[in-house]
C-alpha cells in the first residue's frame, strides 16, 4: 500500500502583523515550521505503515526552503519526499495549489491513499484536500476523526458531520483529511535525523508535470485575488464601571434587567 501525505510549510507563529502603509504581511524574522495539522496526517500514515506495511511519502509545494518540512517528515519516519518548487507556482490560491499538487501526485505515481491535514494555520481554508480529490477524480472524506479499519481495497473511517458521525467505507484510491487529535504525533527522532540527512528529496518544476500550461499555475491559475489585507477592527466604544463590588453588581444587575435578560 502506498500513502502520500500533503504537508505545508507555514510561519512559526500566527501573530503576524500587517504593514499599515503597504498592506503587506510582515514576514521578516518569522521562522517557519510544518503546519501543525499536518503532523496528525503524517502520524496517521506512519501508524498504517507500522500496522500494514505501507510505504509513506510526503509531498509539499513551496519555495526551496520547504525542504525543511520534508526533512522533518523523514525524521518522523516518512520514506520518500517530493517538493514541487518553481517560481511559476508562486501566488497560488487553493485552486491553483490543489491543481499543482494533483499534478505532482500523478507524477509521483498515484498512491492508494492521500492524507491531508484538516487545515493550515496561515491561510486556514481547509479547502486544498477536497480540491485535490476533485482534480484526481477520486472520492474524499474530510474531517476524519477515527480510522476504524484498513482493508485491502478500502478504508473504514469515522467522518465528523454537523450533528452526526458517519461511518463510511471508502474504496482506494481516495483522499482523507484528518482532524487534529486523531493520533498524538510522535516527535522527530535524532537517530533518524542522522540516518536521513542525505536522503534524496525529489524536486519537480512545472516542466516535469504533465500539464505544462503556465496559466493553470500560481497567480495565473488562481481565480481568487487578495485585494487587501488589514488588521482586524477593534471596537473601542465601551462603558467602564469601577467602584465597590456592591456598586458593580448593581450596575450589572440593572443592565441585565434593562436588556430583559432577567
Amino acid at each position: 500500500m502506498e500513502i502520500l501525505v500533503c504537508i505545508k510549510q507555514v510561519p512559526g507563529t500566527t501573530e503576524v502583523e500587517v504593514d499599515e502603509k503597504t498592506g503587506v504581511l510582515k514576514r521578516d524574522g518569522i521562522d517557519s515550521k510544518t503546519n501543525p495539522y499536518d503532523l496528525f496526517a503524517i502520524e496517521t500514515a506512519l501508524r498504517m505503515k507500522e500496522s500494514k506495511g505501507a510505504k509513506v511519502g510526503v509531498i509539499s509545494m513551496g519555495p526551496p526552503q520547504a525542504k525543511e518540512v520534508i526533512r522533518e517528515a523523514f525524521m518522523m519516519g516518512a520514506d520518500e519526499g517530493v517538493l514541487l518548487t518553481d517560481r511559476r507556482f508562486a501566488g497560488a490560491d487553493c485552486l491553483a495549489t490543489a491543481y499543482t499538487l494533483s499534478q505532482g501526485i500523478k507524477k509521483a505515481g498515484n498512491p492508494d491513499l492521500i492524507i491531508c491535514g484538516k487545515m493550515t494555520t496561515d491561510g486556514d481554508t481547509a479547502q486544498v484536500g477536497p480540491e485535490i480529490a476533485e482534480f484526481l477524480n477520486i472520492p474524499h472524506v474530510a474531517n476524519v476523526k477515527r480510522i476504524i479499519e484498513i482493508k485491502k481495497k478500502s478504508i473504514v473511517v469515522e467522518m465528523d458531520m454537523p450533528d452526526t458521525v458517519e461511518i463510511a467505507e471508502v474504496q482506494y484510491p481516495c483522499l482523507i483529511t484528518v482532524d487534529k487529535d486523531i493520533y498524538q504525533p510522535r516527535l522527530p527522532s535524532f537517530k533518524r535525523k542522522l540516518a536521513t540527512k542525505d536522503k534524496e528529496i525529489v524536486e519537480y518544476s512545472l516542466d516535469d508535470l504533465e500539464d505544462k500550461n503556465e496559466k493553470n499555475y500560481g497567480l495565473n491559475g488562481s481565480p481568487t485575488q487578495v485585494k487587501r489585507i488589514f488588521p482586524p477592527e477593534i471596537d473601542t466604544t465601551h462603558v467602564m464601571w469601577k467602584g465597590s463590588s456592591d456598586e458593580l453588581a448593581d450596575k450589572v444587575f440593572g443592565k441585565l434587567k434593562e436588556l430583559k435578560f432577567i
Binding site: 510561519p11 500566527t14 501573530e15 503576524v16 502583523e17 500587517v18 504581511l25 494555520t121 496561515d122 491561510g123 486556514d124 481565480p223 481568487t224 485575488q225 487578495v226 485585494k227 487587501r228 489585507i229 488589514f230 488588521p231 482586524p232 477592527e233
Partner: peptide, 17 residues
C-alpha cells in the same frame, strides 16, 4: 475573511470567474 487564526483580515474577490 479572517486568516492567520483571526490575526489579519483579507479582502478577497473573484473578478474573472
Amino acid at each position: 475573511r479572517p486568516a492567520f487564526g483571526g490575526n489579519i483580515m483579507a479582502h478577497i474577490h473573484t473578478p474573472n470567474h
